[in-house]
Amino acid sequence: MASKTTSRSLQSIARRAQRGCSCSSTSIAPIRLFSSSAARPEVPYETDQAQRPRWSYTPERMKAPFPARPKDPEMEWKCNNDPAKLDQFYEKFLGRGGDAILTEEIKWLAITHKSFDQGRRGFNDRLAFFGRRILNLQVTLSLLHSPLSSATQFPPETSISSAPDPNDHRKPFTHPSLTALQNVSSIPPSSVLTKRRLADLATHLGMRDVMRWKPRMPGNLDGSGIDVVLAASIYAIIGAVALQRGSEVAGHVARERVLKPLGIE
Results as ranks from 00 to 15, higher is better:
53 P>N: 07
257 R>F: 04
223 G>F: 04
174 T>V: 11
187 I>N: 07
117 D>I: 03
24 S>K: 13
211 M>V: 12
223 G>I: 07
88 Q>Y: 06
237 I>F: 00
225 G>F: 06
264 I>A: 06
131 G>Y: 09
232 A>Y: 09
30 P>N: 11
207 M>C: 13
117 D>H: 03
173 F>L: 14
114 K>E: 04
56 S>G: 05
224 S>R: 08
93 F>L: 08
43 V>S: 00
131 G>C: 12
213 W>S: 04
33 L>R: 10
209 D>I: 01
200 D>P: 00
209 D>A: 14
129 F>I: 10
250 A>K: 01
116 F>A: 14
140 T>G: 02
89 F>Q: 05
254 A>R: 02
158 T>C: 11
19 R>E: 13
81 N>D: 13
253 V>Y: 01
116 F>N: 03
93 F>E: 01
263 G>Q: 09
103 T>R: 14
167 N>W: 11
45 Y>M: 00
16 R>P: 00
82 D>G: 01
180 A>G: 13
109 L>S: 00
199 A>N: 07
22 S>L: 14
144 L>S: 11
68 A>Q: 12
203 T>I: 06
236 A>G: 08
34 F>S: 09
258 V>A: 07
174 T>I: 02
261 P>L: 06
8 R>C: 05
235 Y>P: 00
171 K>M: 09
127 L>W: 01
97 G>V: 11
51 Q>F: 10
242 A>C: 13
196 R>C: 08
152 T>R: 15
188 P>L: 02
171 K>V: 15
161 S>V: 15
170 R>V: 05
163 A>L: 13
88 Q>E: 15
233 S>E: 04
250 A>Y: 04
25 S>Q: 11
196 R>Q: 15
232 A>S: 14
208 R>A: 12
243 L>R: 15
160 I>C: 05
248 E>V: 10
147 P>V: 05
82 D>V: 09
182 Q>E: 14
72 D>W: 00
217 M>Y: 12
170 R>F: 09
130 F>K: 10
8 R>G: 07
242 A>R: 02
189 P>V: 05
148 L>G: 11
107 K>A: 05
22 S>F: 05
75 M>K: 14
164 P>L: 12
176 P>K: 06
108 W>P: 03
156 P>C: 08
235 Y>E: 09
242 A>W: 02
117 D>C: 05
97 G>R: 08
149 S>H: 10
186 S>F: 07
244 Q>C: 09
108 W>A: 03
261 P>W: 04
99 D>R: 12
5 T>F: 13
